[in-house]
Amino acid sequence: MSNAPFTPGQTITMAHGSGGKAMHQLIESLFVATFDDPQLSQLEDQARFYFAEMTGAGDRLAFTTDSYVVDPLFFPGGDIGQLAVTGTVNDLAVGGARPLYLSCGMIIEEGLPIETLQAVAQSMKRSAETAGVSIVTGDTKVVPRGACDKLFINTAGVGVIPAGIQIEAGGAKPGDAILINGYLGDHGAAIVDARGELAMESQIETDCQPLNHLIADMLAVCPDIRCLRDATRGGLATVLNEFAAAGNCCMQIEEQALPIRTEVRGICEILGLDPLYLANEGKLVAVVPAQAVDALLDLMRAHPAGAHSAAIGCVAGAPAGRVLIKTAFGSQRIVDTLIGEQLPRIC
């Protein structure tokens, strides 16, 4: 008989969520062994930290949580595990925080192949190493067939914000510039491709990537970045509308300045989608003082996460609370907040 904890073809059963031997085997042999973190390996009901270690890195804590229900679990260039780590890391980073620790909550449908769960856990481990964070605590629940769709993941994250950094959604000022770090809509297009909704000749991969290292470099060049968000569900349009509403100002962008792949534009035309609202998983939107634009763009374009960075517009005083786009024909139109859902279960 093999000494391996799991056999080929084995699937998740209700026993793996019962609190008994099967559950402990799953947690210890799969999650603890894969994530390989000293805090997690203690199997306490919480992770514990010394305040001195955290206060040495900043003067405020940042805390966030998100849940991931993407369909399918694996798609071009990524998977739900990568999303779960990267998405939470980025939510911390866009507040100016240095991400440190993550939790991981798994809701697993009975019948999920254990090989699938192993692949997701390995992806989470790689993503955490890339971002420089630790997965230090977690929880596992198993639900009957049909009670969820294969696998849902919740991750929460803790980070530390350095003194002097004050990034807020309402911080934009007239005259500021709007920057993004690359192509828009790649993640949404990758999910469309993975769902087989189009017979695409060229595969578009998700843009899923951690942004914390890029943001740290940006803050070193420009500590007074006004606003910063990652453009996930709802895309660029939603982020800009949030900035405009919070700052009681107008966000003005230019259609011809937006970096969008030809393939993504084609998908949008076929399916009647707007790339401004397509989800991204590795794109930031920054509002910065105009005098910092050149230095920031030079830095961003030299970074692996920002090779196609661009200045796409500016902030104006009026009409307050609006986002306007100058079209390729020279006219202007309002870019409103997304109504409904363009693509469900995108992340």
Rank of each mutant, 00 (worst) to 15 (best):
E242V: 12
A216V: 06
T64V: 13
R301K: 14
L112Y: 06
A320V: 13
R261W: 05
P275Y: 13
T64E: 09
Q209P: 00
V89T: 05
D71T: 15
K150L: 12
P344Q: 08
I191W: 06
I191R: 10
L276I: 12
I114W: 05
E341H: 11
F152I: 15
T130L: 15
N280Q: 06
A33H: 09
L83G: 00
C222L: 09
L299H: 07
I107N: 13
G164E: 06
L236K: 02
I260R: 01
P144E: 09
P319M: 09
G19E: 08
Q203M: 12
L297S: 05
T327S: 08
H308D: 14
C222V: 12
T327C: 10
C268T: 07
G96T: 07
I204F: 00
V285I: 15
Q342P: 05
E263T: 10
A84M: 08
V293P: 02
L100A: 05
P275N: 04
L297Q: 04
L151R: 04
T11W: 02
L73P: 05
K125Y: 13
L296D: 03
R345Y: 13
Y101N: 07
G78S: 14
V142F: 04
A328Q: 12
F329V: 15
G157W: 01
Q42Y: 05
E28Y: 10
N181D: 12
V192K: 08
R229L: 13
P223Q: 04
S29A: 15
V288Q: 01
Q342I: 14
G188H: 11
